Computed example of a mutant assay.
Amino acid sequence: MKKTKLLVLILFSLSISSFASIKLSSNFLNKFTQINDTIHQRNSATKRHSVTEVFPQFPGGTDGLQKYIKDNLKYPEISARNKVQGKVEINFVVTKKGAIEKVIVMTSLDKYCDAEAIRLIKNMPKWIPGKINGVPADMHRVISIEFKKNEKEEIKTSDNKDPNIYDEKSECPFTLVEQMPQFPGGKAAMDQFIAKNIKYPELSKNDKISGKVYVRFVVSKEGKLYNAQIMRSLDAYCDKEALIVIRSMPDWIPGKQNGVNVPVYYIVPIAFSLPLQ
């Protein structure tokens, strides 16, 4: 009888030990799994940020594009008579086959110049498509079409200078200076200004388009903002909204080089983020 009780006790002790061992192994496996999941997430994040992009290109490059515009642009007579001058900004998609689609006016001049700019873009030859990780893909591009009088006819005076355009030829802006330009109040104040004034376009939101639009502009030596243009596009509606926000900013604290105020190029990313589900 004593032997039987002793045998039962031994078996019970072994079962408890085995259960503890299994539980310990299970906890260890769970921790190991969690660590692996974390590593997997980090690797996924790394892969997401290692995307390589090649932007679409007009056949013949920038020189070819400028020649095409110069040879084919027709200044509307009614706009010329009304002394309408400036730039029409056009957003369009270069498909993975190089075709031009979804041509939209982002910055208007007048309806005649806008129509001519659209015609010019739609009649372009096929582009060299852009690529993402080596694979052809649809990509947005933004082009400014300038309408101005013939240089021989144009009278250049300080009185008729467009207040929204900085003459980069007469005084070339710096890209990096000892003291970079600053939004009044610094980056935190700028982020607050953007968050308060940005309006997420409903069409973009409905299409679940999110990301950043990169806008470059010149901060003059007086702190005024000029020549805002899209450096990296998201879609036509987000691009347009990003330009509106940048152009509505107050004057900045100008940049300095050797203690002297100088014009400086500056790039600001404008984020459009979908609400978390």
Rank of each mutant, 00 (worst) to 15 (best):
V103G: 11
M106G: 14
N72L: 03
E53L: 15
V103I: 14
F19T: 12
L11A: 15
D251T: 14
S13G: 12
F32K: 14
L73G: 09
R216A: 03
R81T: 15
L276P: 02
K31S: 11
R42A: 08
S273W: 08
K161H: 08
I39F: 07
N261Y: 07
V135G: 02
V264Q: 03
L24Y: 11
V260T: 13
E101H: 02
I198L: 10
L9Q: 05
A188I: 12
V260W: 07
Q41R: 11
V262Y: 04
M190Y: 06
T107Y: 05
P181E: 02
F183I: 02
I155Q: 10
Y237S: 11
P76E: 02
M139R: 04
P173N: 03
E222H: 05
K256D: 01
Q34H: 08
L73R: 12
K240D: 13
V84K: 10
I198V: 07
V245T: 02
D71N: 15
K111P: 14
K102H: 13
K3A: 15
Y166P: 08
D251I: 10
D63T: 08
E222Y: 05
N197L: 03
F193K: 03
A20H: 10
M190R: 10
L176F: 05
L176E: 05
Q85H: 13
T107D: 13
S15L: 13
A242E: 02
